[in-house]
Design a protein around this nucleic acid. Sequence first.
DNA 1: ACTATATTGTTATAATATAACATCACTACT
DNA 2: AGTAGTGATGTTATATTATAACAATATAGT
Lengths: 160, 160
Amino acid sequence: MTGHSSPYKPHNHEHCIKEALNKARFLCTDRGVRLTPLRERVLELVWQSHCPVGAYEILTELTQGASKPAQPPTVYRALEFLQEQGLVHRIASINAYIGCSHPGTRHNGCFLICTQCRTTIEIEHSNIDQSLTSCANDHGFTINETSIELAGLCTNCRVS
Amino acid sequence: MTGHSSPYKPHNHEHCIKEALNKARFLCTDRGVRLTPLRERVLELVWQSHCPVGAYEILTELTQGASKPAQPPTVYRALEFLQEQGLVHRIASINAYIGCSHPGTRHNGCFLICTQCRTTIEIEHSNIDQSLTSCANDHGFTINETSIELAGLCTNCRVS
DNA sequence: ACTATATTGTTATAATATAACATCACTACT
DNA sequence: AGTAGTGATGTTATATTATAACAATATAGT
């Protein structure tokens, strides 16, 4: 029941969050790593929307309702874990983090970032990957990690 | 006389620098923008090698031999100008800057960043661009800027 | 020469991220 | 159950990257 509705259309976002958390729990159990309450909470906060969020935004939200303010390492460590598990991606061009929309396989993603509404989607890119690998090979280069971030206007924000 | 020898092979790097500066002077004159001594100096420092350099490295080098230490805005403003003119690219994934290897046309580049020796080359990517544009179009997305950064091992550093 | 604009200098601070060590919690072993 | 070892989190401090805001200077066009 993976109802992948488009982030660009109105949808029951609670469902996105729940699905992301469920997948995360399953994957972590499967891998024998610990999705602690803190890590799960951070993942939930990352999934609050389909827009990348900054580490310090997460920090602020984490602090809401807590007796003491959370500290940066708390968030960064959780994000590091989530990235290692392929549950969250970092968007380097805007120093922000976004939930992975198809976790389960380790990958780096290719992101379409709307500069107006900030909605960001992760797209499949087998042919992009092929082009990249082939170009890299032409230069004797072996790719380990990719950062592919495309900024522009999403289908809602571009004036037709 | 554009002798584009590979950054991976031994080469007369002074020539790279000179060529970059000459092209920059030409382009700026042509466009009626001012490549001031400061901006030229920063461009020269960026071109010290084929590795991306951090803004604060440039700052340090700029300070060498100066009576007073240069300040961050000095460097960032010069870099901003150089980026606007397509003479320098920012590598977001490592917060660093590199000279554009084929200035003259505005573009965003596609970078192969060696994680071992840090040598970074900018590759042509018409087919990558095509793949990206096509993928983006499938989602109704209009690309304005791209950030394509591939980390891995260059031909010299990969063990064969 | 005079004015408008662009550039650079200067001071301060914002925003992002990590180092280092202390404490706590869980796991596995006996 | 007790305990050592590891992993996770708390805490304090600081590093790194980048920009805001305003002052001073230089340049170009009239």
